[in-house]
């Protein structure tokens, strides 16, 4: 990444049947941004991420990465290469980890390197072990997902994403499916990534965490960006009534114990 990358999302619209989920999202993400996305359930936070990497196809919208501009609404039909390119430049961490069940932690991380990036096995293994090391999972390299706790699985999933060297990491509620005592280890890992300067979009209900780690925060409601600013601005001095209501409901005045 020689020059600064920018991701420019324009006019992203998505509806499921007649239910409008994203109602014209315009969003620019600069390299090194950690963008926290907050908002009530069902406002399209996850859908936003899933449209970016084409797990969902939106009705309209485009994304500009550096030089290339990709039409998100018909990339699958018009140019499959674009989809592949998009997916190679983004990495996704899922709420339910989605590790490959019949592969060990090591094989999970190696898979994309071998099949997508066409690296040799030795090279892939080397990279995979390095990434597992980074998330503190090397000792479990030979374990299958079912042997691992939720937090451990999520750390392997993060290593799987990191190994692919994506320009943009999409985190879709990475701690929502975890037992409370396991949330900390995953947040620690994400914080580490933020400090290393990875560009991320983090959808999460861990408000206190977003407040600490994010460089920028948006509040999404009814498919629109309602509030956009630094976490401090959004959390302490929201300009919109809806944001205030939401924060009040989340009773964000008290900080949870496991904040790191």
């Amino acid at each position: 990444m020689a020059e600064k990358q920018r991701f420019v999302i324009k006019d992203l619209k998505k509806k499921f049947n007649n239910n409008i989920v994203l109602d014209g999202i315009d969003l620019t993400i600069n390299e090194g941004d950690v963008l926290g996305v907050i908002g009530p359930s069902g406002t399209g936070k996850s859908t936003l991420l899933r449209c970016i990497n084409q797990l969902e196809v939106p009705e309209s919208g485009s994304i500009e990465i550096g030089e290339s501009q990709i039409d998100l609404s018909n990339a699958k039909k018009s140019n499959l290469k674009n989809v592949t390119q998009l997916r190679q430049r983004t990495g996704m961490v899922f709420q339910r980890f989605n590790l490959f069940q019949k592969k060990t932690a090591l094989e999970n991380v190696m898979e994309g390197l071998i099949t997508v990036q066409k690296k040799s096995k030795d090279e892939a293994r080397k990279i995979a072990l390095k990434e597992l090391d980074r998330v503190g999972m090397t000792q479990w390299a030979n374990h299958y997902p079912k042997h691992l706790s939720g937090g451990q699985q999520q750390r392997v999933a993060i290593a799987r994403v990191l190994a692919m060297k994506p320009d943009l990491i999409l985190m879709d509620e990475p701690t929502s499916a975890l037992d409370p005592e396991l949330v900390g280890e995953v947040l620690e890992t994400i914080k580490q990534l933020a400090e290393e300067g990875h560009t991320m979009i983090l959808v999460s209900h861990e408000m206190a965490f977003i407040r600490k780690v994010a460089t920028r925060c948006i509040f999404l409601d009814h498919g629109k960006i309602v509030e956009d600013g630094t976490p401090k601005e959004v959390f302490t001095a929201p300009t919109q009534e809806r944001t205030r209501d939401f924060l009040k409901k989340m009773s964000l005045l008290e900080e949870p114990d496991y904040v790191i």
């Binding site: 997916r87 190679q88 983004t90 990495g91 899922f94 490959f100 898979e111 994309g112 099949t115 997508v116």
Partner: peptide
């Protein structure tokens, strides 16, 4: 699980690759 398809797609595997290497073995 649908998540297996999505995880494979998200790292850039083609439909055929994910079928052959992830889905069919499972």
């Amino acid at each position: 699980d649908k998540g297996q398809h999505e995880a494979a797609a998200a790292i850039g595997m083609t439909g055929w690759q994910s079928l052959r290497r992830i889905i069919i073995p499972e």
